[in-house]
Simulated scan of single mutants.
Amino acid sequence: MRYTFLLYSNPADFADLTPEDWAKEKEVYGAYIGALQEAGVFVDTDWLHPAETATTITLKDGEKRVQDGPFAETKETLGGFFAIDVPDLDAALAWAEKCPAAKHGKIEIRASAMGDY
Results as ranks from 00 to 15, higher is better:
Ala54Val: 02
Ala39Phe: 12
Ala54Cys: 06
Asp90Gly: 07
Lys106His: 13
Phe82Gly: 03
Leu48Cys: 01
Glu25Thr: 08
Val66Asn: 05
Ile107Ser: 02
Trp22Ser: 01
Leu6Phe: 12
Lys98Cys: 10
Lys106Pro: 00
Arg2Glu: 14
Glu38Leu: 11
Ala94Pro: 09
Gly30Tyr: 10
Val86Ala: 12
Pro11Trp: 00
Phe42Cys: 06
Phe81Pro: 01
Gly34Val: 04
Pro11Val: 04
Asp90Lys: 12
Ala35Ile: 05
Thr56His: 07
Gly30Ile: 07
Thr56Ser: 14
Ala31Asp: 09
Ile107Lys: 04
Phe5Pro: 01
His104Thr: 12
Leu17Pro: 00
Thr55Asn: 04
Val86Glu: 10
Thr55Gly: 01
Lys75Met: 07
Gly69Ser: 12
Pro87Arg: 03
Asp85Ser: 10
Gly40Tyr: 13
Asp21Ser: 07
Asp13Trp: 10
Arg110Val: 12
Val66Thr: 13
Tyr117Lys: 11
Asp116Arg: 11
Tyr3Cys: 08
Ala31Ile: 11
Gly69Gln: 07
Arg2Asn: 12
Glu73Val: 13
Pro11Cys: 02
Thr4Glu: 09
Phe82Pro: 07
Gly79Phe: 00
Asp61Asn: 14
Thr18Arg: 03
Asp68Ser: 11
Ala102Asn: 09
Phe5Tyr: 09
Phe14Gly: 00
Trp95Asn: 08
Glu73Cys: 11
Lys60Trp: 09
Tyr32Cys: 03
Asp61Ala: 12
Glu25Lys: 01
Leu78Val: 06
Phe14Pro: 00
Lys26Arg: 12
Val43Ser: 10
Phe71Glu: 07
Val43Gly: 02
Pro87Asn: 03
Tyr8Asn: 05
Gly62Ser: 12
Arg65Lys: 15
Ala54Gly: 01
Glu25Phe: 08
Ala35His: 12
Pro50Leu: 04
Phe71Val: 10
Thr18Glu: 03
Ala72His: 14
Ile84Gln: 02
Phe71Pro: 03
Glu52His: 04
Tyr8Leu: 14
Glu38Ile: 06
Ala15Gly: 05
Glu108Phe: 03
Leu59Gln: 14
Val66Pro: 05
Gly40Pro: 13
Asp13Glu: 04
Lys98Tyr: 06
Met114Arg: 12
Lys106Arg: 12
Thr18Asn: 06
Thr45Arg: 09
Glu63Gln: 15
Pro19Asp: 05
Asp21Arg: 06
Ala96Pro: 02
Asp46Ser: 15
Trp95Pro: 00
Gly69Cys: 02
Ala102Cys: 02
Lys26Asp: 00
Ser9Ile: 06
Ser9Arg: 06
Pro50Ser: 02
Leu17Ala: 02
Thr55Lys: 11
Tyr3Leu: 06
Phe14Leu: 09
Ala15Tyr: 07
Ile109Ala: 01
Asp85Glu: 15
Phe81Glu: 03
Tyr8Gln: 01
